[in-house]
Design a protein around this nucleic acid. Sequence first.
DNA 1: GCTTAGGTTTAG
Length: 768
Amino acid sequence: MPVQKVNDSSDLDAKVPAHLQRTAITGLTVTSDPSHRCVKARVVHKGPVISCAQKDGIEMLRAEIREEDLPQSTTEHTSINVIFFGTLAKDFSQSVRQGDVVLLADFTIKKSPSFLRDKRHPCQLEMDGNDACVYVCPSAAPSQGPSCSEAKYTYVPLNNLKHKTVVNVYGVVTFFKQPFPSKGSDYCSTLKITDQSDVKVSCSIFSKKLEDHPVIFRVGDIIRLHRFKTEIFNDSMTLLNTYGWSAVTFDGIIDSPVDPRTSSKSFHFGESDKNTVQELRQWAASQSLISNDPTVSLSSVHPGMYFDLTCQLLAKAVMDSRCILLKVWDGTKCEHPLLNVAVASDALEGESTVAKDRMNLTANVLVYDNHMEAAQDLKPGTFLRFYNLRSLLQRAPDQQPDQAEHLSFHLHGGTTYGRGLRSLPAGSPELQSLKSVLENHVDLDEYDEVNDGTLLEIWYTPPEAVDGEADTAHSYTVRTCEHNTQQLTLARVKRSTPPLSCHVRARVKKYHPQQLYQCLKLFCSKCKTMKDVPDDGAVAKVFRESARENQPCDEQWAATSSASSREAGRTISMHISKDMVGQSTHMQLIFVEGTTLDEICVLSRDYKNLVPVRSENGRMALMDLTAPFLFSGDKRYYGCKRCSLNTFENHVFTGVETYDGQAVAEALGVQLMRYGLLIQFELDDGTDTLEALLWENAEKFFHVSAVDASGSQDLQDKIQTIIDTIQPPQSSLEERPWLDLCLSVYTVKDNNINKVCYQITDSEIREE
DNA sequence: GCTTAGGTTTAG
């Protein structure tokens, strides 16, 4: 039943239903039977509508009413607190002003929890929206309070606080701790605020509900406190929240929108508040408290610092009962190598950080003890801020003494210096610059995709027993990774869930291809096509077909010389750009037409860079891309048939000192296919066997460049020699050397079926 | 229902 209005105080008496009996406030006791009673009194205080923490956030409002028709002698317990709940609280807030006379019926009588403090009345009245009824007679004299329905608040400057009063204040936060569990029943926020008076006041806020605590992001935020009581502690004025309190915060950035941050559903906020906030922002900007901001980006972190870090969560993992790992970034590159922390892949929640790890962008933050509670709730993608984060140089357990130490980050237990963390809403104005930095890194995801063969996540698990010999015997390979992961048996690796990275020690049981020249592959980084290097028979056929019935082409830009071949009717032509005439043959890019494969091979002994071409309606065109598009000394460069445009746009290479496959490919509209080495090893460590690819890491593994190997028998022999060492012909498995390998376990989609693959990464042949 | 904290560094 809503609040009902009457025009005159005497009408209130008329409204009293016949069955109700008017009762004096002074006479109310806890044992009074409330039924059939009503009270009539003047509203002397009306509080704001607040949400009641103890009653599941139900709206409530507290008012104080005073009995007026009293004998002179009566002075005790003349006023009483009334609590309105639910819709009645809101209705009362809107319809009743301080100074109005009200008639209340169908209340319940409870013991007053604040009687010892306010000495008002041993009881309080509680009015529930469903049953209770309120009649109000608006006061004729508006002088009792402001004309608006909301009470107007006055704010006391911090240098004018008087002991034992309840006040409203505004201030700039100069220190704060995130809410932490007190030794009592509540969470406690402690903060220090200041204002234009330059007086600093400490403040403690107790509340069971975390969400009721002030939402402070950084020093410099503006805070408004309502109904805080003043107390002297250690000769200093302090503020403590008291019944009906509220806290509202704003960011301290000048000219940013004045957006109140609060969990309170109903709070007063008007034009004068806006002004106060803006004045405090202006004043704070001139104070040193802002310039002492401890916020630091990853790019300027140094070892041993305590600092605040604003960042985005990429992934997280619980390490043990007292530690949780948060992998974060802020888009800036750290000057010091960053420590990667070992994690069980099935315990890691969030995206892969491989690409960012490689670029030294991922900070691994170990969050301890009391901070785990806040860290556990964070979802990957969330923006967050660490307060009083510690950076330390650390040596990874398997790290060589001569390698640079890595930077680790610890959010130690405890709350001193405001140590803690909290999430930041994505729309927060102070996140805008961070977000634009992160957006500049979108290409990283593509990078990740290209390198999906090394979806490296670090694996941590107690090692299984590996047989003694394997543990200590000399290894023919050495791992070059810097992460710290335990060595696993192959059996354990096969039981694991990808993606993960691990260390294994195994022998080569078999390898494929047995004909090693077949391990040389061509790979298109654009469409990911991989193919064998065409054999000479196939290439020779393309040359023969192009040369047949070929009429030399005629291009304005080219100087051409032609000669008859041994075969009747076939002309061999060589074209060079006219502005290159007279240059050394090593500096010239020569377009060759009408030759056989054998002939261009002979020519390439004397001419460094040859592009085989044919004529198409008199114009120069590239040959079918089964053939190389460039012969450069011993090397042949191939283009991707799918991705090349063959635009032949820029045949002019003026001033180019050296040609490489990439530069020529770009000029001709060809998508270069890169050389790679691909070998599959069947590994065996006695517990199990598995097929591991050597692909992305193959050049490092053999210390051989694939493109160089393509034109060098010596380098191909070198690869053969290495293979013959790790798997000597006719040897038994036991005779073969052990290999220490870093292994990446990942899945690929093959015909829509997820297939687990193993790839050897970060491992090299030991060069004695 | 009352108390809690009251800034000042973990030690992984």
